[in-house]
Amino acid sequence: MAYLKSTKHGGVILLPQLYFEDVKEGMEIPCLEVGPITTEHLVRWACAAGDYNPIHYDQEFARSQGLPTVIVHGPFKLSLLARMLLAWGGPNSFLRRISCRYTAIDVPGNTLFCRGRVKARRVLGQEKLVDCEIWMENQKGEVTVKGEATIILPSREER
């Protein structure tokens, strides 16, 4: 079921739902493009996530740590990949697992491309699981996160 919802502002929001039966091995997950990232985005993340390591907002400190400038938080990048997965899966999808290795740094000015591909689909008890390969690239084509995720989807049979 797609969710149709009248908002307080009178508009209607449509959030399509993905079903287990719609998914095929090798399928690409729609890319989520974010950026260019600014230091404001990093400060917003720092406040929202409570991560005040100064390598993310203090340039002088970041350089003293051997970094070229302030860098994008790893869990921020993980969060964007999770958002890509849940936007694809729809409001009744559940993220079971996400793992990320932060293989290279990203800095302000970078545009981040969240990408993913379906590796396998499987049923475990009542759960319909989709295993995905996920990664992040920046505008220079560098892969800066490599990871895996498993998302649980509803089945059309249970509608």
Binding site: N53, G74, P75, L78, F94, R96, I98, Y102
Partner: peptide, 10 residues
């Protein structure tokens, strides 16, 4: 110090 990775299970 840098964060190398996270693995979240829900």
């Amino acid at each position: 110090r840098v964060r190398g990775g996270d693995e979240l299970i829900f």
